[in-house]
Design a protein around this nucleic acid. Structure first.
Length: 651
RNA sequence: GCGCCCGUAGCUCAGUCUGGAUAGAGCGUUUGCCUCCGGAGCAAAAGGUCGUAAGUUCGAAUCUUACCGGGCGUACCA
């Protein structure tokens, strides 16, 4: 509701400013520092003061005079140096909230593509990967909540170095055939993704000690790229199995995908060759004939850097001198495809149905019709950590060099900082640190070193802890039900933990903080929603029906109740779900939604302690309190839903 | 060297994009609160030269510049 009235006021002021002063400007509304100043403040007079060479105060007065009455607004006043403070008509506002139907958001035109997760399919997922997936998934939910059409892509690099290394491990270190590996991954006693986690670390170690063994990797990569020999099948078996594990792990956290584009099809369908032709034709890249990059196709630094210092020093190799293409090259082709600019498409087949949702995977063979159309996005977000900024710049520069300036503008690197391990966490994990690492404040995770906290391990720890809490409170409940509730709490805790930090804040992972259920955490918010539900449940338990709110709370009654500053502030904050989500979308910060959820919960807990609902004797007030309880419950659930967090039946 | 990010309470972080009214929260510490809708909760206290210094401005945590710490990039790895 708040969002609606906010937009209305902003538009009215913008229109007035345009007609009266001929100035075309957006009118953002702020929240006053003190609630006694009103519900909203307009600060547009300050920005106009310079242009008009008039005092902000005078302009503010003119605007107030010119605006006249706005529906739902009870007063406008000039305050301070030129603020215009807006007071809403509380009775009308309350009624409007009461009447507001829960409706589907208005559909917006265009299609947004979000690429996230993108874990190399050669080992189990760790909490660094998890931050990517949860940020991406939550942003998807935020966009969809606002009526936007979103397609979720999870890119699978199934032919890269990391998969090759595990293939090497099976083939050379363990001397296992494809059949042996097949048997291993079907062995219920073996967590195959965990097995590969260890094997990958062993292979990396082996390479360190035996550099000559790197030939194995080179041969494997070559075979994978040219699709020759047994390793192709072996690599496919491994990566397909690991992808399944990743999807399963992510599904525990309610993270889902629409399509899995794979590198193997980018190669087979010759996406790169097509992009290469375009890049050559537009002279976006050139063949280097001298210097250290001799024999390579490179993109000049001037294409992707503001200023260049040394000329050849900074150019980026796209095609290596041995005629193979780098990851960035493939990524340019992939990015072109996302916008429908490549002139080629994958074929698709259903990979799996998870929770009733079909995930498609790319394939090189024509398929019967039935798959939706993927790609052809109008706006593309790539959720990738900040370390890859440089490569993302190169990809965007590729689009620009091909003349796709608009699409380059609409390619957004949704970047975020890493998750690292605190010293204490390393000790708890029993990780032995090198002398060099001990001097550091925190330790970077590394799949190569086998250093990290696996997602499934962390979820299991959280479930175990939540289960202890649930058991101590609900010993009588069936075990299966307790486990279900503990799982919801664990997921709530984990998703919230990953979301409470803004994107460019480095997370120094610490078990004690991640395992906390108190204070600014997911379980705190879940618990609050459960409390609201409990009041209503108790009412129903007494055989009492909910009052007819619309009939009993007419505008006069509403105004009478909302004369209480407490109630008014509570209603205000509870009616800001849309406003808060839209603000978070605009700033690209899922953390803002998490923050709002927490504030909403705090507000309800205040209400809960200050105003006993069921024992209230005044009929009108009791009805009002029940209505607030119901409204808060709904709003808490909606906000948590945007965060991908469910509310348990009880806690 | 160059580029990007970070530095706000004992600890972990919001607030910086878009300058504005008395700089906020959680944890931790101390003190209260269960005849009352479940205490995973609530109330209160203590705790801040917003890294340093200059500049712009009527006004700076927020913009500019320099410097000091820390992190990450700057591969014919991804």
């Amino acid at each position: 509701m708040f969002h609606f009235i906010e937009k209305k006021i902003s538009q009215s002021v913008a229109e007035l400013v345009r007609s009266r002063y001929g100035i075309d400007t957006a009118v953002p509304l702020e929240q006053p520092k003190q609630s006694s100043f009103g519900e909203l403040s307009i600060q547009v007079a300050f920005q106009m003061a310079r242009q008009l060479k008039k005092s902000p105060k005078a302009i503010a007065a003119e605007i107030v005079e010119g605006l006249g009455a706005i529906e739902g607004v009870s007063g406008l006043e000039v305050a301070g140096n030129g603020y215009i403070n807006v007071r809403l008509d509380r009775g009308a506002y309350g009624r409007a909230v009461l009447h507001e139907k829960e409706q589907e958001p208005e559909a917006r035109p265009g299609k947004i593509i979000i690429e996230h997760t993108n874990i190399n399919p050669n080992k189990a997922a760790h909490i660094g990967h998890l931050r990517n997936a949860i940020l991406g998934d939550t942003f998807v939910r935020m966009l969809r909540a606002g009526g936007r059409k979103v397609e979720v892509q999870n890119y699978i690099d199934n032919t890269g170095v990391q998969v090759a290394d595990v293939v090497v491990g099976f083939q050379y270190l363990e001397k296992k055939s494809a059949a042996d590996v097949e048997k291993l991954l079907n062995d219920p006693a073996v967590r195959f993704d965990y097995y590969c986690w260890d094997l990958y670390a062993r292979v990396s170690n082996y390479f360190n000690d035996h550099p000559e063994a790197l030939e194995w990797r080179k041969d494997t990569l070559h075979a994978l790229e040219h699709r020759t020999g047994n390793v192709v099948q072996l690599a496919a078996t491994i990566s397909d199995a690991i992808v399944d594990y990743h999807l399963k792990t992510m599904n525990r956290l309610s993270v889902q995908y629409d399509v899995l584009p794979r590198e193997s099809e980018i190669l087979q369908l010759k996406f790169w060759e097509t992009a290469f032709e375009q890049l050559k034709q537009r002279k976006a890249i050139y063949f280097e004939t001298e210097g250290k990059n001799k024999g390579c196709w490179v993109m000049p630094a001037s294409a992707f850097k503001e200023q260049t210092h040394e000329d050849t020093e900074d150019s980026k190799v796209i095609v290596r001198s041995n005629n193979t293409v780098t990851y960035v090259g493939k990524d340019i082709a992939y990015q072109l495809w996302k916008f429908g600019l490549l002139g080629k498409d994958f074929y698709y087949r259903p990979w799996k149905q998870i929770n009733g949702h079909v995930v498609y995977v790319s394939t090189a063979e024509p398929q019967p019709a039935g798959a939706p159309q993927f790609g052809h996005g109008d706006l593309v977000y790539n959720v990738i950590d900040t370390r890859q900024s440089y490569l993302q710049d190169v990809v965007v520069a590729g689009l620009k060099a091909l003349g796709y300036n608009e699409q380059a503008e609409r390619s957004i690197h949704f970047s975020y900082e890493m998750v690292v391990l605190s010293q204490r966490t390393c000790v708890e994990l029993g990780i032995e640190l090198s002398e060099e690492d001990q001097k550091r404040t925190h330790i970077e995770m590394s799949g190569r070193k086998g250093l990290g906290v696996k997602v499934d391990d962390l979820i299991d720890m959280l479930i175990k802890k939540a289960l202890e809490e649930v058991e101590s409170r609900h010993a009588e409940a069936p075990a299966e039900e307790r486990l279900h509730i503990a799982t919801l709490i664990a997921i709530g805790a984990l998703r919230f933990f990953m979301l409470k930090y803004t994107r460019n804040s480095l997370i120094a992972f610490d078990f004690q903080e991640a395992l906390s259920f108190e204070g600014e955490t997911g379980p705190y918010v879940q618990y609050t929603a459960v409390r609201a539900r409990n009041i209503l449940r108790k009412l129903a338990g007494r055989g009492e029906e909910l009052p007819d709110f619309a009939a009993e709370l007419d505008e006069t009654a509403m105004r009478r109740q909302l004369a209480s500053e407490d109630f008014w502030q509570l209603l205000l904050i509870a009616s800001k779900v849309e406003a808060s989500v839209e603000r978070a979308v605009a700033s690209g910060e899922p953390a803002h939604v998490a923050k709002y959820a927490f504030q909403l919960a705090q507000a309800f807990n205040n209400f809960y302690h200050g105003y006993p609902v069921l024992t209230e004797e005044n009929r009108e007030k009791r009805t009002f309190l029940l209505w607030m309880t119901k409204f808060f419950g709904t709003q808490l659930e909606r906000t948590l839903d945007v965060l991908g967090i469910a509310v348990p039946e009880y806690m």
